[in-house]
Design a binder for these strands. Structure first.
Length: 591
RNA sequence: GCCGCCUUAGCUCAGUGGUAGAGCACUUCCAUGGUAAGGAAGGGGUCUCGGGUUCAAGUCCCGAAGGCGGCUCCA
C-alpha cells in the first residue's frame, strides 16, 4: 500500500466508485451525480428519487461496499466516443451524467471506468470518470461511511437536492483511528460546549435563534477583546463614535443595501408610518457623521471607530453557536481619506491585524476577496479594477501570502480578509479591511481640496476582530478555554483549606486589589473571586480547574504561618511570599 | 431556506406501547479537611410545543420551534 498523498487520493476516489456500486445494487433507481476524493475521504452525490435514505442505512451500504471489495475487483479504464457516451447515459437513464457528458463538448472521446470482478469478468459498475484510481481494490486501506447530507446538484440551490454520502478513508486503520480520536478531542474544545461549561453565553428560545446573550463572564471577555482591538486604532488616531441601531430605510436605499440584501430586518413605525430598519452595517450611519459638516482636505483622513451590533435576518439553517448569529458585534472602523492616503491607512490596519493575531497566537490565512461577473455589486468597472489592483499591491508590499477569492467581495468593494479555522477545521472570516470607492459617491460625500475643488473621499472599512461573537468562537477553541491572564473573566481564585485563617485571606485580597496589569489592555484591575465554601480542598481545586481559572491561590493555616500563598497554575504548583505576590502576578501576565 | 439526524431534571445521559430513572449540580445536616469529587438525607420533570393513532404514547404518525452535520448564502 503506497502511502504518498497521491496514492491515498486515488484510493479515496476509487472508494467513491465502490460506494456508487454498492448503492446501485441496493437502490437500482438511484441517479448518480459526482463522487470526488476530498480531505480525509470521499463522497458521492446521489439522487435517490422517492426512496428515503437516512443515516441508519449507511451501515447497510457500507457492508455492501466491503462485499464488493472482498470479491477481488479491479478498475479498468475505457475510452469511448462522445456519441457512445451519450448513448450510455441515455440507456442507463442517468440524467446527471448526461448533463456532464454534454458539457465535454470539445472532447472527441470520453473516459469511463469499469469496476469489474477480476475472476468472472462481470462489470459491477460503470462510471464516467477521468480517474486516477488504484487498479486493484485490494489496495484500499481503512474506510467507513461517516454521514449523510443534502447537497444541491452543481452547488446551485435552484437545482435538485441530492443526497451526499460522506466516507472517511485512510491508508491504514491506525490513521483512521487517529483521525477519529482527533475529531473527538476537537469536540472537547468546541466553543458551544465550552461556552456553556465556562458560563460565557447562553441562548433562549423565547429571545430567538441566533441571538446570544452574554453572561457577566462572557461580557468581560468580550469587552477585553474589543478594548484590545480598539487600542490599535485609537493609537492611530481613530476616534470613537456612537450611532442608533435603527434607521429610516431611505438610508439603505441610498447605500444599496435595501435593494441587494434580503437579510435587512424592516419594521414600520406605529407613530409616523415610516419604514425603518435595524442596521445591517454601520458604514451608512458613519458616512452621515462625516457628511454632517463641510470637510476640508486638511482634516483628512477622518477616522471613526465603534464597537456595535448589527442585525441580519440570516436564514435559519445557517445559524450556529457564536460562529453565525443574527445580532453581530463588529469592532468596526471607517476612514474617509484621499487617494494618496490609502496606502498609509491600509498599512496601519494591516500591521495592526498582523500584530493582534500574533499576540493572541492565532495564525490566519489571507484572502483577497474580489468580485466575479455576477450582479449584486455597486460602482463602476474602473473603480473596481483600481481598488482590486490596490489591494493586491498592498498584500505584496506587506509580503503576505494570499489566495484570491473571486465572488467574495463586498457589495461596494474588494476586501482583504483574514481567515481562521475552527476546531473542526471549518474556515471563518475574521479580520477584514475593505477598500470602497463606491459608497462615498452614492452618499455624495465630499471635501474641499487645496485648489478649492470638491472631491469625493475614499472609504476604508475595517474590523480587526471581525465579529466579536465569531472571534470568540475561534478564540475559545484555539485556547481550549484557557484564556490568557489579561482577558480571563476570573483571573485569580482564592481557595481556603479551612476557616482557621482569620484575617489572612483579607490580607491576600488587599494585595490583589493593588495589582494593576498593564498589558495588553491598560488599567486592568485584577478580577478575583473567593471560594470559602466548606467543600474539601480537592473539590475546590477541581471546580477551579474545570472553570479554567488561570491562577489559583490556596490559602491555609500553613501558608498563613509562612506568610505566603500556594499558587496553582496550569503549569504546576509553587509557593509565593505574600510580599512577592504582586510582582509574581504582573510577571505572569507578561508571559 | 434545502437534505438528514436530534430534543427526557439546572447539566450529562439511560429508558423502543403499560403511567419516569442515574450521576453531577442544588438544599439541609454531619465532617475543619492541604493540591482534580468526604459522608448522609432531601427537593426537583406538562418527557420542547401542538395535533393524531391506540384501551393505553416519553416511546408510533403529522406539524411547529430549537439544536447538530452538510448544502446554499454571508454587507
Amino acid at each position: 500500500m503506497g502511502s504518498s498523498g497521491n496514492e491515498v487520493e486515488k484510493m479515496r476516489h476509487t472508494l467513491s466508485h465502490v460506494l456508487a456500486a454498492a448503492v446501485q445494487e441496493l437502490y437500482p433507481t438511484a441517479k448518480f451525480g459526482i463522487g470526488p476524493a476530498i480531505e480525509n475521504g470521499f463522497y458521492y452525490d446521489i439522487d435517490f428519487g422517492k426512496v428515503k435514505v437516512s443515516e441508519g442505512d449507511l451501515a447497510k451500504i457500507e457492508k455492501k461496499m466491503r462485499g464488493v471489495i472482498m470479491r477481488g475487483c479491479e478498475m479498468k479504464r475505457r475510452v469511448v466516443s462522445r456519441g457512445e457516451a451519450v448513448e450510455w447515459a441515455e440507456e442507463q437513464d442517468q440524467k446527471y451524467k448526461k448533463e456532464l457528458i454534454h458539457e465535454l463538448q470539445n472532447d472527441e472521446e470520453v473516459s469511463f471506468y469499469d469496476l469489474y470482478d477480476a475472476r468472472t469478468g462481470e462489470v459491477l459498475f460503470t462510471d464516467l470518470c477521468k480517474g486516477p484510481h488504484v487498479k486493484n481494490l485490494e489496495e484500499i486501506g481503512a474506510f467507513q461511511l461517516s454521514r449523510l447530507a443534502g447537497a444541491y446538484w452543481r452547488g446551485d440551490e435552484k437545482r435538485e437536492m441530492l443526497t451526499r454520502i460522506y466516507g472517511l478513508a485512510f491508508a491504514t486503520e491506525e490513521e483512521l483511528e487517529a483521525y477519529l480520536v482527533r475529531q473527538e478531542e476537537a469536540k472537547q474544545r468546541d466553543h458551544r460546549k465550552l461556552g456553556k461549561e465556562l458560563e460565557l453565553y447562553c441562548f433562549s428560545d423565547l429571545v430567538g435563534a441566533g441571538l446570544p446573550m452574554f453572561t457577566p463572564r462572557g461580557t468581560i471577555l468580550r469587552n477585553m477583546l474589543a478594548d484590545f482591538a480598539n487600542g490599535y486604532r485609537e493609537r492611530c488616531g481613530y476616534r470613537k463614535v456612537c450611532i442608533p441601531h435603527i434607521a429610516n430605510v431611505e438610508l439603505y436605499k441610498t447605500s444599496g443595501h435595501y435593494q441587494k440584501f434580503p437579510e435587512l430586518l424592516k419594521f414600520i413605525s406605529q407613530e409616523s408610518g415610516d419604514e425603518l430598519a435595524l442596521k445591517p452595517v454601520n458604514c451608512p450611519h458613519h458616512s452621515q457623521i462625516f457628511a454632517s459638516v463641510p470637510r476640508s482636505y486638511k482634516e483628512l483622513p477622518v477616522k471613526y471607530l465603534e464597537t456595535t451590533m448589527v442585525y441580519r435576518d440570516e436564514r435559519k439553517g445557517e445559524l450556529g453557536g457564536l460562529s453565525r448569529v443574527r445580532a453581530i458585534t463588529q469592532d468596526d472602523s471607517h476612514v474617509f481619506c484621499t487617494e494618496d492616503q490609502v496606502e498609509q491607512v491600509f498599512g496601519e490596519l494591516i500591521e495592526s491585524a498582523k500584530d493582534l493575531y500574533q499576540k493572541v497566537g492565532m495564525k490566519l490565512s489571507l484572502r483577497l476577496s474580489f468580485r466575479d461577473d455576477s450582479d449584486g455589486y455597486i460602482g463602476d468597472e474602473k473603480m473596481w479594477e483600481k481598488a482590486q489592483a490596490a489591494i493586491e499591491r498592498m498584500a505584496r508590499k506587506f509580503e503576505m501570502e494570499y489566495s484570491i477569492g473571486l465572488g467574495e467581495a463586498a457589495m461596494y468593494g474588494p476586501k482583504m480578509d483574514f481567515m481562521a479555522m475552527d476546531a473542526l477545521g471549518r474556515q471563518w472570516q475574521l479580520a477584514t479591511v475593505q477598500l470602497d470607492y463606491a459608497m462615498p459617491e452614492r452618499f455624495g460625500l465630499e471635501y474641499t481640496d487645496a485648489d478649492g475643488s470638491k472631491k469625493t473621499p475614499i472609504m476604508i472599512h475595517c474590523a480587526l476582530l471581525g465579529a466579536i461573537e465569531r472571534f470568540m468562537s475561534i478564540f475559545i477553541e484555539h485556547t481550549a478555554g484557557w484564556f490568557p491572564l489579561w482577558c480571563a473573566p476570573e483571573q485569580v481564585r482564592i481557595l481556603t483549606v479551612n476557616d482557621q485563617v482569620e484575617g489572612y485571606v483579607e490580607e491576600v485580597e488587599e494585595v490583589l486589589r493593588g495589582v494593576v496589569l498593564q498589558e495588553p489592555v491598560a488599567e486592568n484591575h485584577l478580577r478575583f473571586e473567593k471560594d470559602l465554601s466548606d467543600d474539601s480542598l480537592g473539590k475546590k481545586i477541581k471546580k477551579a480547574t474545570e472553570m479554567k481559572i488561570p491562577v489559583v491561590l490556596i490559602v491555609g493555616p500553613k501558608d498563613m504561618e509562612a506568610r505566603e500563598v500556594s499558587v496553582r497554575t496550569r503549569d504546576g504548583e509553587e509557593k509565593v511570599k505574600l510580599e512577592d505576590l504582586s510582582g509574581w502576578l504582573i510577571r505572569q501576565n507578561g508571559q
